[in-house]
Design a protein around this nucleic acid. Structure first.
Lengths: 256, 256
DNA sequence: CGGGAACTTGACGCTTGTCAAGACGTGTGG
DNA sequence: CCACACGTCTTGACAAGCGTCAAGTTCCCG
């Protein structure tokens, strides 16, 4: 059973029927709208006038690059994106993964330029929302005055947890936390909770977790030997999530 | 020469005379207003109606704690604050230091509760700004629709740089980056660029950098042996900032 | 079927965390 | 005013975790 199969067997529920078309029309029928939209005002807020562009990207293509002018914020429609910064030794450092329904690109707000490069790690699609239009909506719709800052903060707190995770934490615990968190986020999105298909390379994971691909590989092998998981290339079945959690003292809140 | 002395000799310039009292009256005569206020609208935006409370704290006192309801955002008037999260092993992890003129507390926006504890690491004073009032101002004043999100983003990007710094970076480079960045931030605020008085313990620094106090101490000793700095207890004179920067390939942008 | 990317596994050595002892400065109480 | 205690920092020795290098395997895609 590959990822496609898994998606069909245990994929996102059928799209809810929104009834009206109060939302941007592009969002009707979007399978992840319930993750992307909930923090937005729903009813008659005029949000349907927002222009939402679709961006289709092939594996490895960047949606914006470090230094690009900030114009849009993005929401993942399908596929997975990574945000990277190039370090002074020339190599890229992964600072975040973006799953379907998650938003990214806010980092450009600080000074009008993106400090990161956002790349599709597989064929993917994202919605581009003009920030200036979104900004106008803030003035017109009371509810959004709080929603936008909350949205930004939510996305950034994910990174603070990463920074906190990497401080003085053994690498096996980092990998375990990463794995359980990824499974949790995918589960929220309707995928099997214990059946994770990694879409990123171990090099990306290592970069994200501040370690090397060899260490990631060794940790996964070790988890498999101890019976916590079963690994078949990029497909990972978490046989004993509770045990893994207990082994490393990981609460259900983890890295996001 | 202690920190007080240094402050007098090379302290913040005399307070600018703002002329009008368009700003919140509390901000008149605030020595760090030019760092705290610039991203706010200045002229006739009605901001003078904001209620800004002063909070005086003694060393070690917390201004808010993990789990507290989010009501205010804060600006440092003087002194230094740290933000910490308690890890599952019971120990605290420092996630940020807040210098005079910097703002903190936005992390409560995501879900209405602060995920961190903010503590004064020395006798300090902060301004508390009601978030709901600030939020109202967004609706009324066009310029602020962008300023608030930009402010939030700026403060959070500082943490991303930390996360990025800690990934696969040797500890001496972390300490060097921390030192140069702290010196830079203090310099912007009118203090001597090469004369840093650490207000935090080495344990705090170690926690912040994901290492131990012993390693921090060893790095500082090593820098001193190599002639980059001169260390007298908590006072650090950066004798050769360019050399230190070059030694570790640190650009002028660093950890914030 | 061939080539390359991604992954696995082993061996070795350095970095750094841990434990421990001692020095220094500061505050407190007799 | 001195003595003591405590917090903070320094330094050393040792061990372990993990990064690096290297060789080999599997899988995917052309």
């Amino acid at each position: 059973m590959d990822f496609q199969g898994s998606q069909i067997a245990n994929g996102p529920p059928a799209e809810p029927s929104w009834g009206s078309s109060r939302r941007p029309s592009t969002c009707d029928g979007c399978p992840v709208a319930r993750f992307c939209l909930p923090s937005w005002p729903h009813e008659g807020e005029g949000l349907e006038r927002l222009h939402i562009g679709r961006r289709r990207l092939r594996q490895g293509q960047a949606i914006y690059r470090e230094g690009d002018r900030f114009q849009f914020v993005y929401a993942v429609r399908h596929g997975i994106f990574k945000s990277t910064v190039s370090k002074n030794d020339g190599r890229d450092q992964v600072v975040a993964f973006h799953l379907p329904g998650e938003r990214f690109g806010f980092d450009g707000l600080a000074d009008g330029r993106h400090p990161t490069t956002a790349t599709a790690i597989e064929d993917a699609e994202a919605c581009a929302i003009s920030y200036s239009e979104l900004n106008e909506a803030i003035g017109q719709h009371h509810a959004m005055r709080h929603q936008i800052p909350a949205m930004i903060t939510t996305e950034f707190l994910r990174e603070r947890r990463l920074a906190s995770l990497m401080a003085k934490t053994p690498s096996d615990q980092r990998v375990a936390t990463f794995l359980l968190n990824l499974a949790g986020r995918l589960h929220e999105r309707g995928y099997a909770a214990q059946d994770v298909q990694l879409r990123m390379t171990q090099e990306d994971i290592g970069s994200y977790l501040g370690t090397t691909l060899e260490t990631v590989s060794r940790c996964l092998s070790s988890f498999a030997r101890q019976g916590y998981v079963a690994v078949h290339r990029r497909r990972i079945v978490i046989v004993d999530p509770a045990g893994l959690r207990a082994r490393f003292g990981i609460g259900s809140a983890g890295l996001a």
